[in-house]
Nucleic acid binder design. Structure first.
Lengths: 338, 338
DNA sequence: TATATTTGCTTAAACGTTTAAGCAAAAGTA
DNA sequence: TACTTTTGCTTAAACGTTTAAGCAAATATA
């Protein structure tokens, strides 16, 4: 029994040609005869030859791997984004390494180090909520490989970005609620230090003003947007003297927490309080009442991010103008705001 | 400006020592003086040296990468399993490449090829529902690297496996339902060709018999267990002349579909029909009524699968006896079966 | 003091592939 | 026929590490 894997050399020995010829034959080089090519491929199959990616990547200085950094794969949004990326990149001959930061800055840094160490040809990332220090992302840029951000980006980094228009989404939501007659619209949002949440808050504030409603700071709440946060902040809102008649929550999970509290207290949704979430997670259509939410076009984001990467590697010389691709989000109206 | 990355050679040149000495210094070899080590590490930092994983992996014949194949990361179970694997393997110096098959056999094969090509040191996999042909898994075994299966495995492959006791879980469920007075318990299951679903069906049948209830084939249904399948099969069960008084669904998603139909038809759960799911997905506690379900100890499964891999690479010579680790699952009783 | 051991390095080969350069034979051109 | 071009390969170096083997100098041992 042979312990060793078969290499290009083994094939060369069988056919009494040079390893170089075998390599070229396997890559359909025009300078190799049809006959030799056929023979090489036959022997390769016979010996169950598996190319060694490490060796070719080392020699070519290109690993054909793309690193993906996400906060958590355990959400419909991210897993759907990743699925599309995979599809597009696979077609172009790339494979992806997915790493999750679990929303931890420290883990995110470790992941980036790992990916660089593994010699990925580029990194597509969405930042953890915790992340403020951008030095690790500068490290990627310094490395010379393309860096594409999606969903959770940072303007300061000056790299390609794909995401939805959070600012405008807030406008759509607020205007929908006002059209239903709401006058006191609360916003359970994320922390302002994350750009997307900041944009949602700014959009909310501007939309309220634009529609001549008063801005009430007690109706604007920042949190981590977990289900528990949603519960806590909803309870808090219900203790206000002047209760809101609608709540716009910047995440479906927190919106669900809010809904649980409303259901438990037998406050009718949407009659007494209208509720809108963000992200269009599958469960929003499954709970009672179903939750209106913003669809983030996850599939498009994944596809476009991957395509942007491919463009960058194809034209590394040309200092292309930066891509900031902002997609329009879509409000899916369900029972909670009808 | 220097385009090139700094290598071990650059450091060697600066200090006028050999690349070999630098390599050893970086690995804290005992035969390198403390002084040289310090100097090497200082220069490495100064030049922002990043080791080239490809080169060391090629030379050492070891990539320190572990491939993970899952049907879909978009489920609490799998993402939680993967999270634990990552934690354990990272600690041991390994990184993981996650690939999802999206339940497609073809994609699964492609993923395995990719992983082998990338020279992973081992593969931890859970098979797609579609998968019947095991030749790709044999390919992994032939490659000589460890293969660990979890959750969805195959006895025929004769490799390490970690999972829960599906057969016994069915017993626990059936007995719980009987204790609540149920007499006609239906089972919306997966396809028998998947071992775990087959075990759940067998467990169900045996538990029914053991408790002296009649086996009624019209109450045993095989499906893909999607939410839509759950809806369709629940509607089908409700059209039976002799309706069930309990339904045990082998997946939470399908259980949710069933629950939707019951809610729509205003059939009271649990009063008229009791319902139990499988997997303890987060939404089971979020919907109304909350769904009783089986917790699969995803964190333990991830941890143990990773540890099993580490054991296998540590002792490749010793033909260890095969590990089949079967964990006890836990029934979480909620409103749908109270 | 003579010999053995340890220390601290160097040299050189190896991992498996790709590729630039080169070269003889075959085929094309004048 | 004498030249150029094309075809079909070979040779050898390179990618960045690691590591076995070796060797001189320093240190320990007898």
């Amino acid at each position: 029994m042979n312990k060793k894997r078969t290499t290009i050399k083994d094939i060369a020995n069988v056919l009494n040609i040079s390893p170089a010829a075998v390599s070229k034959a396997l890559h359909d080089d025009s300078r190799i005869s049809v006959k030799t090519k056929a023979a090489v491929k036959r022997v390769a199959k016979e010996l169950n030859y598996q190319p060694n990616h490490l060796a070719s990547a080392l020699r070519k200085g290109k690993s054909n791997l793309v690193g993906v950094v996400v906060p958590k794969t355990n959400s419909n949004f991210f897993s759907s984004v990743v699925e599309q990326m995979e599809a597009v990149l696979n077609k172009a001959g790339y494979n992806i390494i997915i790493t999750q930061s679990n929303e931890s800055f420290e883990k995110e840094c470790k992941n980036i180090d790992t990916l660089l160490y593994t010699q990925v040809d580029g990194i597509i990332a969405s930042m953890a909520n915790e992340t403020v220090d951008l030095s690790y992302y500068e490290k990627i840029k310094a490395n010379g490989i393309p860096l594409i951000l999606f969903d959770r980006g940072e303007n300061d980094l000056n790299v390609d970005y794909v995401g939805i228009d959070d600012y405008n989404s807030s406008h759509v939501i607020v205007e929908h609620l006002i059209s239903k007659g709401c006058k006191r619209i609360a916003h359970i949002g994320g922390y302002r230090r994350t750009r997307i949440f900041n944009n949602r808050i700014k959009g909310y504030v501007d939309a309220i003003s634009k529609n001549n409603l008063p801005i009430d700071d007690s109706l604007i709440i920042e949190s981590s947007l977990s289900l528990e946060d949603g519960r806590r902040e909803m309870e808090h809102l219900l203790q206000l003297e002047d209760k809101p008649d609608a709540v716009y929550v910047a995440s479906d999970y927190a919106a669900l927490g809010a809904l649980q509290v409303l259901n438990e207290k037998e406050i009718k949704v949407p009659e007494e309080i209208r509720l809108i979430g963000f992200g269009n997670e599958p469960f929003t259509s499954l709970v009672t009442p179903s939750i209106s939410s913003i669809d983030q076009h996850s599939r498009d984001i994944g596809r476009i991010a991957a395509e942007t990467f491919l463009k960058r590697v194809k034209e590394p010389k040309v200092k292309q103008s930066l891509n900031k691709i902002i997609l329009d989000a879509e409000l899916i109206i369900r029972d909670s705001s009808k």
